[in-house]
């Protein structure tokens, strides 16, 4: 053994293996996430696309172990590889450890920035509170210095914004405060849950340019949940497509968009209006979104799939893997059109 060997950080920052998340309700149990295995590359922006009920938020919450009640992770493993030190089994952390893990290793920017900030405290007070809650004995000057640094990243004027109350800020500014907030304790991964849903396109573009800069300059990995194909194409490096709690396809954005494989991904891209391209080529996906209480036999997408075969209706397909890309479809990587 060579003693002074420089240990390269693991190429993945997070590995989720066979995650199963259930919501036991009074009369039945809803399986929000079914057997999802997913690796997030270090330093990359990975997007999870899915419609409402696809389980993307639930899956991401499992990383922080904050799945909303009464959901429970009934199976699988979540492993986090810090830049230094041994991998962390997120599910085996004690409640104290998970509290520190959140925000110091992985932080989150929520969809509703409006309600994530406490309306009766100034922005500065909330930052200070977070630092204190994490047991950091920072002086006021140190906190201010750190705040100035993160505010600079999100292009907010510290002197103006720090003493504001949330209602004095516009929606876009609040979301930027939230991003600054997520950077506070220098996490290695930021989870972004629909960060621009309520915002205008110009603000959205601005926020994504800020995020991209943070990703490039600070090397922070990002997991982005969205339903907007356009944002994925413009912003992400990798993309995972979720449907009814299953990971239908995963791969680099360029691969997925250039060589469209999975019928659902294909349908989704083809159903997204755009400012360029032929409008007549757009086609809606037929049928209606899946009802998690009453999923079809076999492949969950089969009732809406134009390439559905008898075999699809009988058995849920396995996931075919090829060079970092995986597809959960009976047709796998073969040509079938």
């Amino acid at each position: 053994m060579v003693e002074n060997q420089i240990v390269q950080p693991h190429e993945n920052i997070v590995e989720i293996e066979h995650a199963v998340i259930d919501y036991p309700l009074r009369r039945y149990t809803i399986r929000a996430v079914t057997d999802v295995s997913l690796s997030l590359k270090r330093g990359a922006i990975t997007a999870l696309v899915g419609e409402s009920g696809s389980g993307k938020t639930t899956l991401a919450s499992s990383l922080l172990r904050c799945i909303s009640e009464p959901g429970i992770l009934s199976g699988g493993e979540v492993r986090f590889y810090p830049a230094e030190g041994a991998p962390v089994e997120v599910l085996k952390l004690s409640p104290r450890e998970i509290d520190r893990f959140r925000w110091e290793k992985v932080s989150m920017v929520f969809q509703a920035a409006q309600s994530a900030l406490n309306p009766v405290y100034t922005v500065r007070a909330q930052f200070e509170e977070t630092v204190r809650e994490h047991g950091m004995k920072w002086s006021r000057e140190r906190i201010e210095q750190k705040m100035r640094e993160v505010f600079d990243y999100v292009k907010l004027d510290y002197d103006r914004v720090a003493r504001c109350y949330p209602h004095e800020l516009s929606g876009g500014m609040k979301q930027r405060v939230m991003i600054a907030f997520s950077l506070l304790l220098d996490p290695e991964l930021i989870i972004l849950d629909e960060p621009t849903t309520a915002l205008d396109v110009i603000t959205q573009d601005y926020i994504f340019s800020i995020l991209k800069r943070i990703n490039r300059e600070k090397g922070i990995s990002m997991l982005l949940m969205t339903h907007d194909i356009g944002i994925v194409a413009k912003f992400a490096d990798y993309v995972g497509v979720l449907y009814a709690g299953r990971l239908m396809e995963f791969g680099s954005v360029f691969d997925v968009f250039r060589e469209r494989r999975h019928p659902y991904t294909k349908g989704l891209i083809r159903a997204t209006p755009s400012l360029i391209g032929d409008l007549e080529a757009l086609k809606p996906i037929g049928g209606s979104p899946p009802d998690l209480r009453n999923l079809p036999q076999g492949c969950v997408f089969s009732p809406r799939c134009p390439y559905c075969t008898d075999a699809c209706r009988e058995r849920e397909p396995d996931t075919a893997v090829q060079g970092g890309r995986c597809i959960k479809c009976i047709h796998g990587f073969e040509e079938y059109e």
Binding site: V201, D205, G230, K234, F257, S274, L275, G277
Partner: peptide, 19 residues
């Protein structure tokens, strides 16, 4: 500016140009 800001569902149309 508005037209530039609209994300296009095609990664090949990406640009890092400022608005």
């Amino acid at each position: 500016a508005l037209l530039k800001a609209v994300p296009v569902p095609d990664p090949d149309a990406r640009s890092d140009e400022k608005l």
